[in-house]
């Protein structure tokens, strides 16, 4: 298991207490799970993705990740409509383990991009992880 200081938590992302990350790219928000989450889960063997066009509120479950250890729900960091899913994960779910930031899961058109400001920055997320320990 990685020590907290070994975790790769990029500064330019925002995070949730459920261990998702989000990044604004133009008009869409890219969503994945953090290095901490992939390390805790172990090898991911299956990703259940939503359909493009599905709409969700912030905090809604939008899919599941199955690792060797557990089945975990994925929660959307902000509300919006799914504009793309990472179909590469169907054949290679291990991409999330290899690089959880390159191995994105969905892209969404946010209802309000301003909602991103309500999420945690790197320090805020790190504080949650320290509290988890």
């Amino acid at each position: 298991m990685k020590e907290l200081e070994e975790l790769n938590l990029p500064e330019d992302l925002v995070y949730t207490k459920d261990h998702e990350w989000a990044r604004l790219e133009g008009e869409v928000v890219v969503v994945g799970i953090s290095d901490y989450a992939q390390d805790q889960l172990g090898d991911i063997v299956f990703v259940e993705l939503p359909e493009v066009g599905d709409s969700f509120e912030a905090g809604d479950e939008f899919g599941t990740l199955e690792s060797v250890k557990a089945v975990s729900e994925l929660y959307l960091p902000i509300g919006g409509e799914i504009t793309a899913v990472n179909e590469e994960l169907d054949d290679a779910p291990e991409l999330i383990n290899q690089d959880p930031y390159d191995g994105w899961i969905v892209k969404i058109k946010p209802n309000d991009p301003g909602d991103l400001d309500k999420l945690l920055d790197r320090n805020g997320y790190m504080g949650i992880l320290k509290g988890d320990e």
Binding site: G42, E94, N97
Partner: peptide
């Protein structure tokens, strides 16, 4: 140990 860094697969 549940698994090592190389992963369970």
């Amino acid at each position: 140990p549940l698994w090592y860094p190389q992963g369970v697969k």
